[in-house]
Design a protein around this nucleic acid. Structure first.
Length: 368
DNA sequence: AATCCGGGGCT
DNA sequence: AGCCCAGGATT
């Protein structure tokens, strides 16, 4: 492995200059480049967290059109911001975006903080985003360290440290900052990320046509597909969420999830969670019977089953559609009855998870 | 230090 | 269908 102090000043200069030249030739034209407007740069960076350019672009345009200036965003209500964000995921980004706009407009008189140290204090702005805004908008010589930068640095300099460990992050950040050139800081930061996104990709890196090939540690040691190193996280506990859509066709049992655990505040149907996969529906009958005395599977009800999976979460829906389902006094605590119309009007990404949305909007929740 | 937050792309 | 991706906040 290369140690940092083995990198000569000549190597550093060549590295930065190569990336800048590469960037000049290969950069994509993006609406948030070629601007120094911190509002536009900030907005684009928040959208681009965990989001690809292609996916984020329409959202960026919609936000700029709806909120051309930071005061427009600051004056909006949260509901409006969340609806524009709908479909992007990670909704706390939208809440923090709005909070941050209000703070900058109301408390700072609309003056965007200009330094990394000030920016990182703002909600939704961490080390990466603070460095991006500080360097793109204000030419501060501070390195961005995102997934692309981890990958490019790990490969070129042969850094075999885990990028998701605290010490690994620190080392990569230090190296990144040592490599930042004296001029064109913003362009350099854009360049290394663009290079990682378009050329030195996670898979299928274009090493054959790479000007850094002769000094790339990973290429020379056949480590391109191995780097960057990442600490494996132990397999998450598999969770089986068995939902029972219990209703008479007009009203359904629903509750809002509590603050702990996943899907905070989101609505859900009657839930029986199990440690393992339950294939046989009959297993649940003893639990359902007391709550649901009128329930007769054999004759009066219809059963639909839908199965959805994501990561360690396995979600099953049993749709039990029977008459006399909504006896108030057997309703379990913290569940309430909601009409179909009330369910449909709950804001989709904010209060209804995609799984439940699938159920509410594609299953036919009608009277039998 | 570990866990949660949501989408989409790739195989 | 099952992996992989990865900034920031929270605990």
């Amino acid at each position: 492995m290369n140690s940092l102090d083995q990198i000569t000043p000549q190597q550093k200069t060549y590295f930065a200059q190569y990336l800048l030249d590469w960037y000049d030739k290969n950069k994509r034209k993006l609406p948030w480049r070629d601007t120094k407007d911190p509002y536009k740069i900030w907005l684009s960076e928040i959208i681009l967290q965990q989001t690809r350019v292609d996916q984020g672009m329409p959202y960026y345009r919609a936000f700029i059109e709806t909120f051309p200036r930071i005061q427009d965003l600051a004056h909006a209500n949260e509901e409006q911001v969340l609806r524009l964000w709908q479909g992007l995921g990670y909704y706390t980004r939208a809440r923090n975006l709005h909070r941050c706009a209000k703070y900058i407009y109301d408390e700072l008189g609309g003056n965007f903080p200009k330094t990394y140290a000030e920016l990182i204090k703002l909600p939704g702005i961490g080390p990466y985003t603070a460095a991006a805004i500080a360097s793109f908008a204000f030419d501060e010589a501070t390195a961005v360290v995102d997934g692309n930068v981890f990958r490019v640095l790990a490969r070129v300099w042969g850094i075999q440290l885990e990028i998701n460990s605290t010490s690994g992050k620190k080392t990569f950040t230090n190296l990144a900052n040592e490599l930042v050139p004296a001029n064109r800081v913003g362009d350099y930061n854009q360049a290394i990320m663009e290079f990682g996104a378009l050329h030195c990709q996670p898979k299928g890196a274009k090493c054959g046509e790479c000007g850094l090939a002769s000094q790339c540690h990973a290429l020379q040691h056949k480590l391109v597909d191995k780097l960057p190193l990442k600490k494996k996280k132990p397999q998450a506990r598999q969770r089986y969420l068995n939902y029972f859509i219990i209703g008479d066709g007009e009203r359904f049992w629903l509750r809002q999830r509590q603050d702990k655990d996943i899907w905070k505040n989101l609505f859900e149907f009657y839930l029986i969670e199990s440690e393992e996969l339950v294939e046989n529906f009959e297993i649940f009958l003893p639990k359902l019977k007391p709550l649901f005395p009128d329930f007769v599977l054999e004759s009066k009800s219809r059963l639909y089953k839908h199965v959805l999976s994501h990561q360690h979460l396995h979600v099953r829906f049993y749709h039990l559609n029977t008459p006399n389902a909504c006896v108030e006094n057997v309703l379990p605590s913290n569940y309430s009855l909601y009409t179909i119309e009330e369910i449909r009007q709950l804001p989709k990404p904010i209060l209804i998870h995609k799984y439940l949305e699938h159920c509410v909007f594609s299953l036919n929740l009608t009277k039998i």
